[in-house]
């Protein structure tokens, strides 16, 4: 492929320094040598178990890692290196985040203001109303506070915050946490639509089944390492999957027999 990827991540590692007991300090690597390419119009899902440091991937790309975390590796955006300075210019405009829950919204600010980033001109207001409309939300949602949103509304409000600026790269952190399968499919449909409009979408999720359904490619992530990168279609056939963990995951899916995952030891990986 000679197209330039929108996002190209090479050998990304993220680590934390922390105290393992009272007086011993250690570096804990949460992401090891991750490689990922995202092209225009593509939805890529990164699948990993809860607590596997998936969110940190989003935070690393957006340059918002906590102060005790550090990363190495190279990231580039549309062919240019994505430095901290560059991402500070791009985030919120070309690169946007769809956060995982309503707690990422200011509890004391009306939803409308938050969707349009507190900008109060007429154009932003119109754009916001269009966006609300696009996701089937009424105008009255603008006047609500985050605590008044139902789960499904909150999801759509969070997505609305992302599409206000016609982004080129959308990073969705766990967009379907514990919601009903139909609702989840609908949410993922929204991301498909965003990709079809010309953006690249990176979905970070723990749900392999939904990932296969919604994404073009799926990256399986375990204990910080990339185990498998495959086209979503490859998941229809167990033999096309290379890693035993992925195969185990695959077998655990309902339509494939629902067999339990045998415990995987670090040594098997």
């Amino acid at each position: 492929m000679d197209r330039i990827p929108i996002l190209d991540i090479q050998n990304l590692s993220v680590s934390f320094s922390q105290y393992v007991d009272m007086f011993r300090k250690n570096d804990l690597q949460v992401i090891k040598d991750l490689n990922l390419k995202l092209f225009e119009g593509e939805v890529v899902a990164v699948v990993g178990a809860s607590g596997s440091g998936k969110s940190l991937l989003a935070h690393a790309i957006l340059g918002i890692l906590p102060y005790n975390a550090s990363f190495s590796g190279r990231m580039s955006y549309c062919g240019e290196p994505l430095t901290q300075m560059r991402i500070e210019q791009l985030r919120g405009k070309e690169i946007v985040l769809v956060p995982q829950s309503v707690s990422y919204l200011d509890p004391l600010m009306k939803v409308g203001f938050q969707i349009r980033k507190s900008v109060n001109d007429k154009r932003s207001k119109e754009k916001m109303l269009q966006t609300l409309n696009r996701y089937g939300l009424g105008e009255e949602v603008e006047k609500l506070y985050p605590f008044e949103l139902s789960g499904g509304m909150a999801r759509r409000v969070l997505i609305s915050t992302a599409v206000m600026d016609s982004p080129r790269l959308v990073i969705a952190d766990e967009p379907t946490p514990g919601i009903h399968i139909d609702a989840a499919k609908q949410v993922l449909g929204h991301f498909r639509k965003i990709a079809d409009d010309g953006a690249a979408v990176l979905i970070i999720t723990h749900d392999l089944e939904l990932a296969i359904e919604a994404a073009d490619r799926v990256v399986v992530f375990y204990a910080g390492m990339t185990l498998e990168e495959a086209q979503a279609s490859d998941f229809s056939d167990e033999s096309k999957l290379s890693h035993p963990y992925t195969r185990a995951l695959w077998r655990a899916m309902p339509q494939n027999g629902f067999r339990a995952i045998e415990s995987i030891k670090e040594a098997d990986l």
Binding site: F16, S17, Q18, Y19, V20, M22, P66, N68
Partner: peptide, 10 residues
């Protein structure tokens, strides 16, 4: 600081 687990990440 010594006893609080939250300060482990420093």
């Amino acid at each position: 600081k010594l006893l609080d687990p939250a300060s482990a990440h420093e």
